[in-house]
Design a protein around this nucleic acid. Structure first.
Lengths: 104, 104
DNA sequence: ATTTCTGTTCGCAAATATACGAATAACTCC
DNA sequence: GGAGTTATTCGTATATTTGCGAACAGAAAT
């Protein structure tokens, strides 16, 4: 038990992003958004097997992590990937996975 | 409410992997293992600010997800990245993030 | 055999996450 | 002002996660 450092903000950010992706519903949401630019809550709730209220919760989780954003377009709500943050996230994961080029 | 499909096994796998990475302690573990090939539980518990028993739980989480593997080398236990699964995971994430090349 | 070193499992507590339906809000159309 | 549409929030229940220390287990050394 010597000196212990805490986590870097980058580690925390990466963990936050990973956690946000850590559920099949949220993966499905992301893939849907990636495949068609943007789409509506209603569209998703027709495809993703979960109650609307639950879908809202998952969308919120992704929004809080900064991965997506929603804009109100009455009477519906349109969700899109936050491209800037998405690219950032992609780079962080890429960096993590490319650290494995060592030893052999 | 029309027909709803469930999740593909790929979506579930990706979510599983993401979830395993979704905690700062586990990110720290992974980075440590990536930077020095393998290392011992004891080494990690000196650097990562968490009780040994908690560390074991996190290691187990990563092991269950197939990301790392541990071998007993009395009196210690040596942990390594499972390179095969790690590469696989990297490809899955890369594929996900590269889907964003659209619209503009 | 018991002491010592290691790491895991157990038992428990507290916090979070997941899920649903009902209730609510916001906006449009009659 | 209702009636209809859509999505979110509320209330609730259950399950999982996270965390710790104590107890345990396996192997080596005294």
């Amino acid at each position: 038990m010597t000196v212990k450092k805490s986590y870097t903000s980058e580690q925390k950010r990466l963990a936050r992003l990973a956690k946000a992706l850590g559920h099949p519903v949220r993966i499905a949401i992301i893939e849907m958004l990636l495949s068609q630019s943007c789409c509506y809550h209603g569209d998703m709730s027709e495809v993703i097997p979960v109650a609307k209220s639950t879908l809202s919760q998952h969308l919120n989780e992704l929004k809080d992590a900064g991965i997506i954003q929603g804009t109100i377009t009455p009477p519906t709500v349109k969700y899109c990937i936050n491209r800037e943050h998405w690219a950032e996230a992609g780079e962080m994961f890429e960096k993590l996975f490319n650290k494995n080029v060592r030893y052999e």
